[in-house]
Design a protein around this nucleic acid. Sequence first.
DNA 1: CAGACACGTAAGCTGAGCTGATGCTTGACG
DNA 2: CGTCAAGCATCAGCTCAGCTTACGTGTCTG
Lengths: 315, 315
Amino acid sequence: MLDVRRLRLLRDLAHLGTIAAVAEAHTYTPSAVSQQLAALQREAGVRLLERAGRRVALTPAGAALVRHTEVVLAALEAADATLAGARAGLSGSVRIGAFPSAVRTLLPPALVALARDHPALDLMVTELDPVDVPAALRDRRLDVALLHDYDTVPVEPDRALDSTPLLDETVYLAVAAGTDPAADPIEGARHANWIVGSPGTLCHAVARHACQLAGYQPTVRHQADDFTAALALVAAGQGVALVPQLAVNQPPPGVRLLPLAIRRRTRVAYRKGAASHPAVAACVAALHATAAAFPGDDPPGRHDEPPPGGPPSAA
Amino acid sequence: MLDVRRLRLLRDLAHLGTIAAVAEAHTYTPSAVSQQLAALQREAGVRLLERAGRRVALTPAGAALVRHTEVVLAALEAADATLAGARAGLSGSVRIGAFPSAVRTLLPPALVALARDHPALDLMVTELDPVDVPAALRDRRLDVALLHDYDTVPVEPDRALDSTPLLDETVYLAVAAGTDPAADPIEGARHANWIVGSPGTLCHAVARHACQLAGYQPTVRHQADDFTAALALVAAGQGVALVPQLAVNQPPPGVRLLPLAIRRRTRVAYRKGAASHPAVAACVAALHATAAAFPGDDPPGRHDEPPPGGPPSAA
DNA sequence: CAGACACGTAAGCTGAGCTGATGCTTGACG
DNA sequence: CGTCAAGCATCAGCTCAGCTTACGTGTCTG
């Protein structure tokens, strides 16, 4: 019978790419990971890895094994969830990850509701960029996390994760008040200075991608990860910025918001199998309840998946 | 993350009933199993077992955990199967279990075909009664096994196993040549001496059950597990016996066979997830091929499940 | 009401699996 | 083309999880 701990290392290797990274994620030394993977390979009787330059790559057999591993891990997660359900009362800790603007807006009401309904729950919030969410969930540094799904920058679904939709918002181009609106605002901003997120964040990627679709490279003048800061810069005539609806409840004076075709969909993600974990389910439900009260015009027509309970789709 | 080795112990406890039996199945001491289950319970945070007299019983939470465990184990078995598929050529050992009459009739041609087509395969045959098959498969003492499914004595499907149908035979009541056939042969044998299998075997249970349905307890005169022996006794006027079609290709003189409504369905069983194991699949295919050539009038109308490939049903 | 059966606990020992040190190969850079 | 760092593999050594053995406790049986 294959050892699940070793399979987990192989699975993480598939995602992280190097043994060193896997070791770091598990707080092991690379040596330990190397030994365990060698042992796994020995008992598998098939080559699972092969050196590719100075790193290692999975063989087809290794990749196939990883796919099976995802199933095993999801089943174990589900087992854990029913155990948590059997434990009297909702307790334990839930680590929630979210992007900055959600931490400011969406999360506080949800946390208040959760703390009221389940006092034994230890809620821990971590602010992080959506691009880091999948790895954080997989490595069990988080249990629940919010991420985005821009239609312009599609994220491929992660086999280890599930998610349910939360919000569907309009994205605006924030320009200085005096600006004339163009037919296509993005096209109109071809020669403008841009205020974007720092490189490596999703915001940064979305802005660049939107301009790329319009056929140009944006002139980046400022970098601001905080939308309030970005809007202040826009109001100061420093340039234009992409802002989602959630960030602009009350736009500062001196800013004009031009609605774009881009939509930002926010989802709650968790490890596959964890949907039935009562604490995770409570968090997801609380987030849904909070999101319903938010301005995000989440159109009923698209709501094919019922917020809680229904079968979640891959994140 | 729950430890699969411990989950396996819990799963086996659910089937075997006592820690001592689980220990024996794993060639551990009972103490070791007790300690591991205690550890599992500790990390689960829920009572999984409770003393029931001098044994232990699963709590509802424990039973739920066992159900999840079956999924995990099936996924691991499937992983194993794909690895076996990735290993060049068909090799390794397959332990096949079968009831005595199949070992005499059905198995030899299948073994010859398998040895011819896959010389690297180590085939090991074990003769055992169908009642012992599920436990033997679960405990990995066997990989593939034949079992029966009399409609009069229904076996509840085993969550850990899958199976596909092989043969569907008529069961006969063997009586001495001079006997007058009654409308209902079983009813007619109310006052006859019976020749049945030894207690604890499926044959024994089927005979008793058939008589019970007719409203009487059979007078057991002889016990013979071998059908040839039983038929010899019948020919010698020592009593009546139930024999399946497979056992009576050429009935000895002095025996009359009265067809009954009882049917004996033979199935090939294996651990869930092992269906895709190439060696297991080869065995199952070979058995199907052999069975097709046998007199078992397996009616096409009932054959809703295609022999190989189709989704197997629980054993 | 002894005796056997079954589980739990305590103590002690062994090996799986970790760390840390070392060496090899690969790719980047001047 | 030489140098350096990144990354993996291997070896030796140590530690602790988890096994066995021994014994105690509760419970069904003849």
